[in-house]
Every structure is written in C-alpha cells, then in structure tokens.
C-alpha cells in the first residue's frame, strides 16, 4: 500500500516536473507582457523534433541533443517574437489568441508534412533505461533523470531570477512595466531574451517529453491545455507557483487515473474550474 502510494507520488511528480519545464517559460512571458502565447506548445514540439532529427539523422547521443533542442527552439522563437508577436503586445487578448493558435495549426501541419502523423519513438541510451529499486519501490531511471533535471532547472531559475541583475530586471518588469521603463530598463529587450529562454525551456521540455508521452504533430494542442492549467493555477510570472502547480497537476492526474479511472480526466478539469473560480489569479498570483 505504502509502496503503491510512493510509486504514484513519484510518477506524478515526474510527470509534473515535465509539465513544469514545458510551462515555466509561458508563465514568465505571460506575466511579463500579458501576451497569451498559445504557440508555446508548438515550441515544445520543435524541441522534440530537433532531438528526434539529430538522433536519427545525425546520430547524436541523446544528452547532446538536449542543449541543441534548447538553443534551436530559442532561436526560432525569438525570430517569431521579433517579426510577429511583438506587433500584438498592445492588442486585445482575442487577436493574440487567434494569431498564436493559427501558428499552432501551421506548425502541426508542417510537422505532419515532414514527419507524418504517427508517434515518433526515440531510443534513449541504456543508462537512462530500466529502473532502480529502493526499499521495495521501483523508480524508473528516466523519471529520476527527469526529476533531477527539473530540480536543477528550478534552482537555476530561482537563483537567476533572485540573485542576478538580469533577474531583478525581469522581476521589476513583471511587477510594474511602466515603472521599470521609467527607471531605464529596456523592457522590450528584456522580454525578447526572456521569451527566448522560456521557449528554449519549452523546447527542452519537448525533447524530454518524447520518452514519457511521445511526440506527434498534435503535441502542440494536446499539452497546451496542461501548460495553460499550470500557468493559470500557478499564477502569472511566478516560478515557484508554476512549480507547485505542475507538481500538483502531475500528481492529481496520475493518482486520479490510477485510483478513479472513471473520473480520471474529469478530476483535473474540475479542480481547475473550481480553483480558478475561487482564485482567478491562481494560487500564487499577485496581480
């Protein structure tokens, strides 16, 4: 019984960490510019396909493709930000939603054109396969790896946001954009860099996700909902909030599907509705 609970908690936490890596960038960019970027999931998908292509065509080792997924996704996203998204910062939420969801359709069609609509499996290296048994509970190695990566990223992000000059600029711009501009912070370029970093993280998340949830052209749609839930529940612009929300969502989802399979998928949506109705700004949202 205990081992079962520990196992579910572990699996849920690992899934939650994946969601955290996928969505933390969206949370910060939404908090920073109030720009509703529904194409965030597509950036994650790009990262996934980068890893896939490099491993299949280039014969790269899995771990080496992860930084590449981050960098290439970040570069592509910043190109979109500079050419398309920035025109809509002052626009209505509806226009932003329409533009970015259009990009999701385009990206899904492009991915289907080049890679087909089937799931694309990858072969992770041997040392990430199998599982470790600790005190009678078996922990899948890949999920442990995921957990370590996510915790490392959390430390990096919180450290970067709290203790560096650039982090202070981001926080200032999220809290009060006009005041930050008044103090001479170039909010636009802060945002461009933040956007690139956030999308790069999504790309990394997409690459990490292949082994857990697979990769196909509908990735951008399917995980968009999860990302938005994490962001909305965690509160905009809050790394800690995203972390807590992602962990909660992952654990709720896995536990719900395990214990009450009939109610499984309902559970998170109903929790989402109730939570946002009671706290429209999310669990940790300030504004």
């Amino acid at each position: 019984m205990t081992t079962q609970i520990v196992g579910i908690l572990f699996d849920g936490l690992a899934f939650g960490m994946l969601l955290f890596v996928l969505s933390v960038g969206l949370s910060v960019t939404l908090g920073l510019m109030n720009f509703i970027n529904l194409a965030h999931g597509s950036f994650a998908m790009i990262g996934g396909y980068v890893t896939l292509t490099l491993m299949r065509e280039g014969g790269w080792p899995f771990l080496a493709t992860l930084p590449a997924a981050f960098v290439i996704t970040a570069l592509i996203s910043v190109a979109f930000e500079r050419t398309l998204f920035r025109r809509l910062y002052r626009s209505t939420a509806l226009n932003q939603v329409l533009l970015t969801i259009g990009l999701v359709f385009v990206s899904a069609a492009i991915a289907a054109y080049f890679y087909g609509t089937v799931q694309q499996p990858i072969q992770v290296p041997d040392y990430l396969r199998g599982s470790h048994e600790i005190a009678g509970v078996s922990f899948a190695t890949y999920r442990l790896f995921l957990l370590v990566v996510a915790l490392f990223l959390v430390a990096l992000l919180i450290g970067g946001l709290e203790y560096t000059r650039f982090g202070a600029r981001i926080r200032a711009a999220v809290d009060d954009q006009r005041m930050a501009r008044g103090l001479g912070i170039d909010v636009d370029s802060v945002f461009a860099v933040t956007f690139a970093l956030g999308s790069g993280l999504a790309g990394l998340g997409g690459a990490l996700a292949i082994e857990i949830v697979g990769l196909d052209p509908s990735f951008g749609f399917h995980y968009l909902v999860f990302m938005l839930i994490v962001v909305a529940v965690g509160g905009l612009g809050s790394v800690g909030g995203s972390f807590a929300a992602a962990a909660l969502l992952g654990i709720f989802d896995v536990a719900g599907k395990y214990y009450v399979p009939a109610l499984g998928s309902f559970l998170i949506y109903i929790v989402l509705i109730v939570l946002l109705f009671v706290r429209p700004r999310g669990l940790f949202g300030k504004r």
Partner: peptide
C-alpha cells in the same frame, strides 16, 4: 475575466 475566463471556459468544454 481574462485568463481565468479563458481557462474556465476551456475547462468546461473539456469536461
């Protein structure tokens, strides 16, 4: 309103 509204309507649809 805003994001909460978008997410709640989306959630109702998904339910």
């Amino acid at each position: 309103h805003h994001l909460a509204l978008i997410m709640i309507t989306l959630g109702l649809g998904l339910v």
